[in-house]
């Protein structure tokens, strides 16, 4: 398998990971990197985009170093968690500079994302979300991309059209780019439909298919509803097709109903309809997002269960790989 992107125990100066060496080798295609900036996702974006010189290790895109080669950087699209746009005046001017220097139509991409009005704004007047959206449009418009390294491409992007973002990422992956979506959201990772890599302290600890990701906590939307009549609300919710599971809890003085479904909007709408039908009063609605530790633990459990199930059924060959050995850690690198 040809790896388009190789990051070998690379350390990025000033990364929030605080010196965690990042190791990664990815072929062309769509990859969701499930992790947080403290695991090194920001370092990946900085290093792969040639924005930071690796203090140690090696970063290769198609066999060359992005930090040292402008022509290579022109074919890499990057977005960071805190956006980093140069103050060259208006967004329009920045888009023109990008089009002049490396081609691609960033202006058209901004329109496709439904953010055309941002073009006339001054860069210094953009909110962080709007700046992230502009950065995303520029990254997605990268001509003949080798790598797209996008940090949280679906979150805090000033209402950029999610479908258009997914489509552009899938199109780049189909054209031979290694498309990385760095995210802490299991639902976003599952939605992309590519491989999902659990990333922990600089290394990929497990790689899952999008089907396997559907088994993880957080892969579907969940709402926790505080109500006066949980049984009636739960009963009303079970009749609705959009609802996949309902549980209730009356034990702690307050009554909660937990509802799961395909996405937050539809689950929220279902809760509203059910409450109206059951005559239940709703005091609060809260979205439930599992922590990455919970997700990692569930992934380990699922892999272990599949491994044991394969042997128990006598095939002798595990259905999935046994739990992966952890990769190199910061402690090893420093020793």
């Amino acid at each position: 398998m040809t790896h388009r992107l190789i990051v070998q125990r690379a350390l990025s100066a000033g990364s929030p990971a605080g010196g965690v060496p990042v190791t990664l080798a990815l072929p062309p295609g769509l990859h969701a990197i499930l992790g947080t900036p403290t695991d090194g996702t920001t370092s990946i974006a900085e290093l792969v985009g040639g924005m930071a010189r690796p203090r140690a290790g090696q970063v290769l895109v198609a066999g060359r170093e992005p930090y040292r080669e402008p022509s290579l950087r022109a074919r890499i699209g990057v977005t960071l968690a805190p956006p980093s746009l140069p103050d060259v005046g208006t967004v329009e001017r920045l888009l023109r500079i990008c089009m002049e220097t490396r081609g691609g139509d960033a202006r058209a991409m901004l329109e496709r994302l439904g953010l055309a009005p941002l073009a006339t704004r001054r860069i210094t007047s953009l909110t962080p979300d709007e700046a992230r959206a502009v950065e995303l449009a520029i990254a997605l418009a990268t001509p003949n991309p080798l790598v797209l390294a996008l940090t949280e491409p679906f979150a805090n992007t000033a209402g950029a059209d999610r479908g258009a973002v997914t489509e552009a990422m899938q199109h780049a992956a189909a054209a031979g780019a290694a498309v990385l979506a760095m995210t802490a959201s299991v639902a976003d990772a599952a939605d992309l439909g590519g491989q999902v890599h659990l990333f922990e302290r600089g290394v990929v600890t497990r790689t899952l298919s999008s089907l396997a990701v559907a088994e993880l906590p957080g892969s579907e939307a969940a709402l926790r509803v505080t109500t006066n009549d949980p049984r009636a609300l739960a009963a009303a919710l079970t009749d609705l097709e959009t609802v996949r599971s309902v549980t209730w809890d009356e034990a702690r003085g307050l009554s909660f109903v937990t509802v799961r479904g395909p996405d937050l909007d539809r689950v929220g709408f279902a809760v509203a309809r059910a409450a109206q039908r059951a005559g239940a009063r709703i005091y609060a609605i809260q979205s439930i997002t599992p922590g990455l530790e919970e997700v990692r633990a569930a992934a380990s459990g699922l892999a272990l269960a599949a491994y044991h199930a394969a042997y128990r059924h006598g095939s002798g060959t595990p259905m999935t790989a046994p739990p992966a050995q952890p990769g190199p850690r910061a402690s090893e690198a420093s020793s």
Binding site: G49, R73, V78, S84, I97, R102
Partner: peptide
Amino acid sequence: VAAATTPLARFGISR
């Protein structure tokens, strides 16, 4: 100096 040029160099312009 290298870091000061990065906001534009990231788009493929030589530093």
